[in-house]
Amino acid sequence: MVRLSISRHWREKGAYYRLEGIECLDCGKRSYPPAPVCPHCGSRNVRRVKLPRTGRLLSYTITYSIPEGFREYAPVMLGLIELDDGTRLVSQLTDTKPEELRENMRVEAVLRRVQVDGEYGLIHYALKFRPHRPGGRKE
């Protein structure tokens, strides 16, 4: 049986897969997730942009009170993240441990499974954030 909506997640794939947000052509601020109006100044003069994949942790939490469907990722670690261009977002943190988390820690976006609809439904993918792994140059 399918519990999670197909279309509701499918239509967000620009944001989920590629970190698409909006940039306001009036106040210049960027926002995530994308919206028809700039949340900062109310302008409709916005364009879709691909946001930088790296940033830092402004705040984080380790959750032991797990909502239905997330037990395999417990404890669920969440971050309030500021991307390198100043855009903020809330995302799940992955490939890390509670004792590794620090404020201002560098993080990078990676595609991961976010929710799996039981044994037969869809696998919903999106970008999560993990501590920056060593190697290569920063994008």
Partner: peptide
């Protein structure tokens, strides 16, 4: 909270407040 961009990631009413609490204390 925002179903599509907070809850989707496993965030909850309480865990989002935890982000604020840590930020407040710091």
């Amino acid at each position: 909270c925002n179903a599509q961009h907070e809850l989707f990631h496993g965030a909850t009413l309480i865990s989002l407040q935890a982000l604020l609490m840590r930020l407040y204390m710091n």
